[in-house]
Amino acid sequence: MVPTILLDVGLMAMLVVVAFAIVRLKSLFAIVMLQGVYSLVSAAWFVSLDAVDVAFTEAAVGAGVSTVLMLAAMLLADRESRPVPISRQIGPLIIVMVAGFAMFAAIGDMPAFGDPHSPANQYVGMNYIDQTAEEIHIPNVVTAVLASYRGYDTFGEAVVIFAAGLGVLLLLGLNGNAGKWRAQPNGIRISSASAPAARKRPMPEDAPKPPSKPKSTPKRKSSPKTTRKSTGGKS
């Protein structure tokens, strides 16, 4: 039992360290990568808590796909976050402290981990575990609950995912060409006319071509320090 607790504490400590690093960093690229690390560590922690299905999802979605999506979104924005003045940090700090204090105060009411008398381990959950074997005949109770007993919920989930995809497609277009738009990542101006999806269309004279050698663009916003930091690993 003791090694498991050590593992849990170690993983939690790693989560805290990564979270502080995310708060302190300014380079958005590093922050996105650290968010992937955070997801992967929490996935490991879920495995340690025997929630393998959740860990699976966290590793695939959090560390995999959402990191890529965040990178793709970041490329349309600046590479560095701008510092926020102290006066605007006080309000959020108070909210976070009150919420954190409320959570700590609520810990006392939580059932112990694995407590057989906790609400989660009584009532309908026990019925699912008892009846899955005879009603559905599959060994994995999680799948039985997800797809059969709670089929409505999962249907709602599928519709929510569909709606999310639909929203993105309505806003951006499947080829990224919905509407007229302009972005200035890293000081390089791109627009609906210069994006790769729009290349086949005749290009207006004033629109800059997709920069093949961004090094020569003098308009770069990012300081040389971060440029060195972000490319340092590859040279």
Binding site: V65, G165, L171, G176, W181, A195, S230, T231, K234
Partner: peptide, 26 residues
């Protein structure tokens, strides 16, 4: 089908919106 397609759709939508980067620009 829904999850794989939606993930790809979001990736295509975001990914198509910027020019490809050269290695130095990362």
């Amino acid at each position: 089908l829904a999850v794989a397609s939606v993930m790809l759709a979001i990736f295509y939508a975001f990914g198509s919106r910027q020019p490809e980067l050269s290695d130095e620009d990362w």
